[in-house]
């Protein structure tokens, strides 16, 4: 009986593992394929002969990325945006989440604020009004146009707020009896206890800023000021029609040796790098950080 069961169990375990293995592979294939393309020879990539391993491996595309001034300008702007935007998000998210985690008895206006947040999350005036507003403030073409409108990440506030609400109430009460003010409670008690959650929402806000492309497209006046994702979004073929008319066949051949397919793949990989670096460190907090953000009454 036991023997039969354990064999059966092993078969089940085996099939579960096999299924998970397939799922995991499916997650990786498009990414590995892109890596393979980025290291491949242009003709092979264009003919669609590259699958998961580079063909005639070359780093030519990466050399070209390194040589692309605008790519790096855009990269730096994105870094600046992430640092600035992430910091603002960090401070505001914690403050708002902490205050809103109080119930209406402690913080009478709480529900009003809360609905206001939800309202702003759902309503927007559309592209034209948004553009006109930023223009009125004189923020067009500045980094602040990318950062300030997203200063409050409502979703993150709600997430962190729900985590705060799940912390034992006694904590707060005991501290207050000792005469500690709310700022003290927030900084000395709540923040240290919520590091996984804070790490999680911080990652979210970093990723948000890193991945945004649309605001750059509308609000930046010169492509020199585009953040990275906007730059990649607007990538037009590097060897343009006009450029071709003026190149000699030799120059053309050299230019064509690095096709856009491989070149773009290399750009994609390079732009993923920052996320790939940060992500593993914070990933382990997820399970603890995102309990289903809600409180049972």
């Amino acid at each position: 009986m036991v023997g039969y069961n354990s064999v059966r169990n092993r078969i089940i375990d085996g099939s579960i593992l096999a299924a998970l293995f397939l799922i995991t592979i499916a997650c990786l294939i498009p990414l590995l394929h892109t890596v393979a393309v980025s290291f491949s020879d242009k003709t092979a990539a264009d003919a669609g002969r590259v699958f998961l391993t580079p063909i005639k491996a070359t780093t030519a595309s990466y050399a070209k990325v390194l040589d692309d001034g605008q790519f790096f300008k855009a990269f730096l702007i994105s870094v600046e945006r992430v640092l600035l935007g992430g910091l603002i998000n960090f401070v505001l998210t914690i403050m708002m989440a902490f205050a809103l985690s109080k119930d209406a008895k402690q913080f009478p206006m709480r529900n009003v604020y809360m609905w206001f947040l939800v309202f702003t999350m759902l309503f927007n005036g559309g592209v034209i009004p948004w553009f006109m507003t930023i223009k009125t403030y004189g923020l067009l073409d500045s980094i602040w146009a990318l950062v300030l409108p997203h200063a409050v990440q409502v979703f993150n506030v709600i997430l962190l707020m729900n985590f705060f609400r799940n912390l034992p109430k006694e904590l707060n009460e005991a501290a207050e009896i000792d005469g500690a003010g709310p700022w003290y409670v927030m900084i000395r008690l709540y923040i240290p206890l919520s590091l996984p959650s804070i790490a999680t929402v911080t990652l979210f806000s970093i990723v948000f800023h890193w991945n945004s492309f649309f605001d750059g497209l509308v609000l930046m006046s010169k492509q020199d000021h585009y953040p990275l994702q906007t730059y990649i979004q607007t990538l037009v073929t590097q060897i343009s029609a006009q450029a071709m008319t003026s190149m000699s066949p030799d120059e053309l051949a050299a230019a064509m040796a690095v096709s856009n397919r491989t070149f773009n793949a290399a750009k994609i990989i390079v732009s993923m790098i920052p996320i790939l670096i940060i992500y593993p460190f914070i990933q382990r907090f997820f399970i603890h950080g995102i309990t289903l953000g809600s409180v049972k009454e």
Binding site: L92, M95, M96, F98, A99, L100, K102, K105, Q106, F107, P108, M109, R110, Y113, F116, L117, T120, F123, N124, G125, G126, I128, P129, W130, M132, T133, Y137, L148, P149, A151, V152, V157, E176, G181, P182, W183, M186
Partner: peptide, 30 residues
């Protein structure tokens, strides 16, 4: 507990002001 409400307002306000400026004002244009 109510006496802390003022502090809570202060914690929320910077964010609320930014939301007013960047989310509510555009709705006016709408």
């Amino acid at each position: 507990t109510r006496k802390n409400a003022l502090h809570y307002h202060a914690m929320v306000l910077p964010g609320i002001i930014l939301l007013l400026l960047f989310s509510v004002v555009p709705m006016g244009y709408a």
